[in-house]
Design a protein around this nucleic acid. Structure first.
Lengths: 238, 238
DNA sequence: CTCCCTCTCGTACAGCGTTCGAGCCGATTC
DNA sequence: GAATCGGCTCGAACGCTGTACGAGAGGGAG
């Protein structure tokens, strides 16, 4: 994987795609397509350059002509999924608040569709065309609210950090529940939960009560609660 | 060095003079110690079972007697660093709000000391003794505020999700700035930033203005802003 | 003494990301 | 037509990873 050296990183976006000759050869587009398919199916661990090659009916290392790194490939994949994030126009949506809320929901939905993005957010500066488009639109929404200068950056960071944190915790928790019922999960804690019972009875009670009905509806409510809290806090500061 | 091959008569010279029993054998404690040292020094990529073994003056695979997996080792490491997180008592700190704020700051500080935790949060259910201790204390703080049932869970999730998201984005951004000045970083974007200049001038302006002075002080202010926003929002709902 | 349990570690295996260089093929140039 | 070139593919190899396995050392117990 990437070696975090001290040199200035050269990003995919700074280098033009190699000019293509015909159709039947591979290009960045289909490579990213195939990578996305593997990522969505089996997560980050499901994407290896060899598997990607065979999926493309190509040699294992042919991809390296079109993409320098696996890291670069992941950058491309990240920007691709960012194209799914929509930011409502503040004027049409009826103010900055619906616009920002719509963005937050859209971003969360995207992360839930592509849980592998969680690990990758911020692993590199996201400056791809779609990421910049989203950022630009969100910033204009916040400017509609009256934020400027540092407060503008602070407000944006607050929303995006929360959404990534919340959607991330949902996604990774979902990954561990796949094919396991809540009862089984509680049962698998077995003696350990019983020890918590003894040492921290109120916590154990809470765990049982909350985990027992942690379905999609509750998660939806959880996110809505957090988002509204956060927007209320922003409202008083604009 | 003589290598003992086959069934050569066992001579003093063919074998090291004392088969190394200097340490009372390794235990989980020192294994986690060494793992933490590697993780803090070189991040997640810096921890390999072989490096860990040599660091412990042990064979590469000796660790597997004490720990089943690398995953388990990381779970132990995660719980160890959770011991650094402190939750002020609500009564002593002067209310739920200072208590929760203190917890948030302590968690963020821990993540900044151990940036490799970012990827690991939520990658497995955190039910180690220290994690449960922290969760218990935080829940009692929120109960002091009057939260119960679902709102209790929602409030807790809001804070922890935000802190992890914010500290995570800080940590990963810091990892990419290591040894690179902001000027170099902006310069490395080169023509690409100029394209953003052309297509999204307000965004480019914002990027230059914000990235230019993204020092620790600004990050501190950013976190404080978000945290206060969020606590304000919680205040109206308790 | 032998037996057994705890613990160490060399070896091996499959898989990873990536480099290198050989080679194919269509287009251009002589 | 022949030679050359550049875009592109790909097999082989390198060094690394996590982990399974089994041989064996050390010390206590019978």
């Amino acid at each position: 994987m990437a070696a975090p050296t001290g040199k200035a990183p050269s990003s995919v976006w700074t280098r033009p795609e190699r000019p293509r000759r015909e159709q039947p050869t591979l290009g960045r587009e289909q490579i990213v397509d195939a990578a996305l398919a593997l990522l969505d199916a089996d997560g980050l661990a499901g994407l290896s350059m060899r598997r990607l090659g065979t999926r493309l009916n190509a040699g294992a290392t042919s991809v390296y002509w079109h993409v320098a790194n696996k890291d670069e490939l992941l950058e491309l994949a990240m920007d691709r999924v960012m194209s799914e994030v929509a930011v409502p126009d503040a004027a049409e949506a009826g103010g900055w608040r619906p616009a920002v809320a719509g963005y937050a929901r859209s971003l969360r939905a995207m992360i839930r569709r592509h849980p592998w993005t969680v690990t990758l957010f911020g692993s590199r500066p996201m400056i791809g065309p779609n990421a910049t488009r989203v950022m630009d639109e969100v910033l204009t929404a916040f400017r509609h609210a009256g934020f400027t200068g540092h407060d503008l950056e602070y407000a944006w960071a607050l929303v995006v950090d929360y959404v990534i944190g919340a959607a991330g915790s949902e996604a990774s928790r979902a990954a561990h529940q796949r094919g396991v019922t809540t009862d089984e999960r509680i049962a698998s804690m077995g003696t350990y939960l019983r020890r918590i019972d003894a040492e921290r009875p109120r916590l154990a009670e809470h765990i049982r009560a909350v985990w027992a009905k942690e379905d999609d509806q509750v998660l939806e409510g959880r996110f809505a609660f957090g988002l509204e809290c956060l927007l209320d806090g922003l409202e008083t500061r604009r």
